[in-house]
Each structure stands twice: as structure tokens, then as C-alpha cells.
């Protein structure tokens, strides 16, 4: 058998194996494309968690009560933790953490485009928790059954921990809407600005989504972008009603036949412009990340230098004894 034929056979075996809902583990043989797809998706997911610390971190020192400050600290901290779980999963595929971060710094890796919008008021912290985290969870729950073991395990942990993120965001909105007119306005304004970017978090419409069929077959993805988007809208509309907020979509209407909401088309031109780097905060987010990494270089080197000196000292003590 030629090498090519052998690889084709292995790939076929692998495809059947994962399609039957079996798990692949780190050192198992896997098609190169499966590995690359996973590295791309997991690291993109990790980068989103890390870049996502910035918009909310923007309010850490200005949280309006000590309770909110504690909650926000815990939430931003979780995002850092989730980024690390995911980097750890991605590393099992053979790309190191430094390489993964470097891909981000070089602009070669993406992160969720939603974080390229600014957090202008305190209500944005509420809107992010409510909408962005709800959308994220809808994307993430199916990933708990993803075919790649380490990714699935990381997602199980993340989903469990993130359930409070959504709730705290919704609670912020709830309290604002029970408050003064200025607070209500703040909440409505935040919803107006975060609604469409949240709807776009599920990615382009199915007919324009090129990577989907492979990732479905490999059990990395289980639902299409449009299916998840519909689920998001169907759950957000009654939630907005309870808040007394108006979703900024004039075409939003219950469809009795479909037993689902019809909704307007997001501005996909804007979406692709932001993905390509033209959003209000793309440059600021990446510059921030790169600056922090560069500024911290001397400290990381110092820790390594100290560790090496220590082990040299221990070795020489041993040989002297």
C-alpha cells in the first residue's frame, strides 16, 4: 500500500470512529486537518476568553458597589482561568502556549469579534453578562460532547463555572430597570449597542459558513450557526420582556407556524469589517495584549533565571555532599 493510501485508510477509520461519538485523546493518531482545525478553534476560543477580560476589566476599578466589584473580579478571573484551561487543551495538540499567544500577538489568530466593541457605561457589564455570555453558553454546551477529549473536558468545567456569569449580568440589568430613569436609559442604551453584535456571535449565516460540514462530521460542531442563533433569540426575547427593555429589531415578531421568532438581518457588512480589524476597539485590544506581554518579559525571564540558579545550587550542594 502506498503512504497516501494508508493515510486515506487511517483517515476513514478515524472519521467513522469519531462520527460514532467516540473520543480522540492527545497522542492518538488523527488527520492533520482535524488537528489543525482543533488548534485553530480551541486557541481562538482561549484568545476570546483572554481578550474578553479587557472590556469588562475596564470597569473593575469603577464598579458601583462592593458586591458588584467582588462579582466582577470573580468573573474576569474566571475568564482568565477559562483561557488557561483552553490553552492547556490546545497544547495537547502540539502547539505550545507561547506559540499560541504569539499567533495572537502577530495577528495570525482570531478571537471573538464582539470584544472589539467598547464598554461605555456600567450597564455594558450587565449586557455582556446577559447577552454575550448567553450566546457563548449556547455555543459551548454542545462542545462538552466534542470528539476531542481534552477540549470536551475543558468545556464541561467552563460551562459549569460560567452559569453564574449570565445570571449576574441579567441581575445588573434587572436592578437598573427598577432604578431611576437615568439607570433605565443606561440599560436600554447598552442593549441597543450589544444586541446585534451578540446576534452575530454565532457566525455568518449557514449558507456563507465554509468550515461547517467538516467540523460537524468530526463532532466538533453539532448545531449550525443559524440553529443556535434562533435559540438565542427565542430565549432572549422573553428575558427582555421581563426586564421591560425593547430589543432594537423592528422585524422581531413571533411566528406561530415556526413556533419561533422571526427577526431582521444583522448588518453583515459591519460584521465582516470588524472581523477584518476595522471595529472600534480591534487595535486597542490587540495593542493592549501585546504591550502587556512585552512589558512582562523581564519578569518572566527573571523567574526562569532564578529557577535555573536554584536548581544549579541544589545540584552543586548534592555533588559536594
Amino acid at each position: 500500500m502506498t503512504d497516501e493510501a494508508r493515510i486515506a485508510e487511517l483517515e476513514k477509520q478515524f472519521d467513522d470512529y469519531v462520527e460514532a461519538d467516540n473520543k480522540a485523546e492527545p497522542k492518538d493518531w488523527m488527520p492533520e486537518k482535524y488537528r489543525k482545525t482543533l488548534i485553530r478553534q480551541i486557541s481562538q476560543h482561549a484568545h476570546s476568553e483572554i481578550i474578553g477580560m479587557q472590556p469588562e476589566g475596564n470597569w473593575l476599578t469603577r464598579a458601583p458597589s462592593l458586591k458588584r466589584k467582588a462579582i466582577l473580579l470573580a468573573k474576569v478571573q474566571d475568564e482568565a482561568g477559562h483561557g488557561l484551561y483552553l490553552y492547556s487543551a490546545a497544547e495537547t495538540l502540539g502547539r505550545s502556549r507561547d506559540q499560541l499567544e504569539d499567533d495572537l500577538h502577530q495577528g495570525k489568530a482570531k478571537y471573538s469579534s464582539i470584544f472589539n466593541y467598547p464598554t461605555l457605561t456600567w450597564a455594558d457589564v450587565g449586557a455582556i453578562g446577559w447577552l454575550v455570555d448567553s450566546a457563548a453558553i449556547l455555543n459551548q454546551i454542545p462542545l462538552c460532547r466534542c470528539s476531542y477529549g481534552p477540549y470536551a473536558r475543558a468545556m464541561i468545567r467552563i460551562c459549569k463555572e460560567e452559569s453564574f456569569h449570565q445570571r449576574q449580568g441579567y441581575e445588573i440589568m434587572l436592578v437598573l430597570n427598577r432604578g431611576t430613569d437615568a439607570q433605565k436609559q443606561m440599560a436600554q442604551d447598552a442593549l441597543n449597542r450589544w444586541w446585534w453584535p451578540s446576534v452575530q456571535m454565532f457566525g455568518p449565516p449557514d449558507e456563507a459558513s465554509p468550515n461547517s460540514s467538516h467540523t460537524m462530521k468530526w463532532r466538533i460542531k453539532r448545531f449550525s450557526n443559524d440553529e443556535l442563533r434562533q435559540r438565542f433569540i427565542d430565549q432572549a426575547v422573553p428575558q427582555a420582556d421581563v426586564l421591560g427593555l425593547k430589543i432594537p429589531d423592528p422585524d422581531l415578531k413571533w411566528n406561530d407556524d415556526r413556533q419561533a421568532y422571526d427577526f431582521g438581518a444583522p448588518d453583515w457588512d459591519e460584521f465582516f469589517a470588524v472581523v477584518k480589524g476595522k471595529g472600534p476597539m480591534n487595535k486597542a485590544r490587540l495593542d493592549h495584549k501585546v504591550r502587556v506581554w512585552d512589558d512582562g518579559g523581564w519578569a518572566r525571564e527573571a523567574a526562569m533565571a532564578h529557577a535555573e540558579k536554584e536548581s544549579a545550587r541544589r545540584a552543586s550542594q548534592k555533588s559536594a555532599a
Partner: peptide, 10 residues
Amino acid sequence: GSLHAADATM
């Protein structure tokens, strides 16, 4: 899972 650290204490 895994993590990176300069030494075992860290």
C-alpha cells in the same frame, strides 16, 4: 489539566 510555571512552587 496542565499549566506553565518557572518552578515547582509557582
